[in-house]
Design a binder for these strands. Structure first.
Lengths: 203, 203
DNA sequence: GTTTTCGGTATACAAGTGTTTACTATAAGA
DNA sequence: TCTTATAGTAAACACTTGTATACCGAAAAC
């Protein structure tokens, strides 16, 4: 019940969870190593048994949030694809995930700025993966439906921008207003899809 | 030449500029009061002659960036409105401003997260003002052109999301790739405008 | 010309920071 | 069973943090 590796993994998770919890309030960038340790109920020195520094912890966080959400969205799009409402299904899944993992999501959105440190580079890469996923899906579906989507990449980029930007607001909203926001995003996504579906005058 | 008020304003600007400069690298949230003072070449205690704390300084920064950019964009839209390319003119102006005031812009984008502190509230309000401005413009133009825009508000929100999200990338790009990015944003904005211009099946 | 006001410095403080070192308890390996 | 490896603690380090106090010099007010 307390195999060594098992126990280590447990306190590793305590560190990650504490970071998630704390970074929800003040943002990951402002967290101190000691603060996280206190939140996890651990001595500062023990931190180094798990991570080299806060930056390394940050990278793990990015992976965590990225993997989960991306897989979820893929599944959502597959499920809804052949029932018309690609947008509705994906957006609803997205919002659900965001509201269920607010802390994880805050990290993902929080510090995407400045090309400097590796944390932000990882974040950027993660977000780009969403765009690529969506691009592939949009191209596939548009071919199948014989409703050609011009510039699927542009559409995907725009859709992700809207989802992440407007979607972030859901975190600070009382529950009863979340549905409205979801509908708004769905409409905006559909708007982009319409705009993309008939080819613009300038390629 | 050194009237008191005059001199005070001068060091006030030194503080603001130092903050802008420093926050470009690591983000405003991680800046310490002392650090800013060192950057401005003054004593920590002198800081309090100008601002109560870093938060108050932050609010001033938000105002600064918001005012400048908003006015600029208004002018740009007025200028280009009756020449077809609303999108092109506005986006180009926007990108130009961003590349000319990278630090200011980084602050504007950097810490828009978490509804908690007043800094972020101010930032959010500032961005909303962009959306409102654009909404009004879109409605006016669509009425004039007899090409009704349905849900101008949604379109404006989506356009701002795209501009701010994708536009942020320009900061970390070498000069020769900036034009590409600008074109990409223009296309995406036009995409949204097309999607908005013919009324969707679901209102 | 004298006094007042005030933007600035110098200094001190308690508290928090990242990191290192020596040590302990106990699971894993022989 | 004895030894080794290791996840954890405790304590110390040099340093930075925000803030308060006393003070200085010169512009402003009288």
């Amino acid at each position: 019940m307390k195999s060594r590796a098992e126990q280590k993994e447990k306190t590793r998770r305590k560190l990650i969870d504490a970071t998630l919890r704390l970074s929800a309030e003040r943002g990951f960038a402002t967290l101190s190593l000691r603060e996280v340790c206190k939140g996890a109920g651990i001595t500062p020195a023990a931190f180094y048994r798990h991570f080299r520094d806060m930056e390394e912890l940050g990278l793990v966080l990015v992976d965590e949030v990225g993997l989960g959400l991306r897989e979820l969205l893929r599944a959502a799009r597959r499920r809804f694809q052949r029932r018309g409402g690609v947008a509705r299904g994906s957006v609803e899944t997205f919002i659900k995930y965001v509201t269920e993992n607010p802390n994880l999501f805050r990290v993902l959105l929080g510090e995407r700025q400045g090309g400097s440190n590796s944390f932000q580079k990882a974040l950027h890469a993660e977000i780009n993966r969403f765009v690529e996923d969506l691009t592939v899906d949009l191209e596939r579906e548009s071919r199948k439906a014989k409703r050609p989507l011009e510039e699927a990449g542009l559409a995907a980029e725009a859709i992700c921008a809207v989802a992440f930007t407007v979607g972030a607001e859901v975190l600070d909203l009382p529950k009863h207003r979340r549905l409205d926001l979801t509908e708004r995003i769905i409409n905006e996504v559909n708007m982009i899809l319409r705009g993309a579906s008939l080819g613009g005058r300038r390629a």
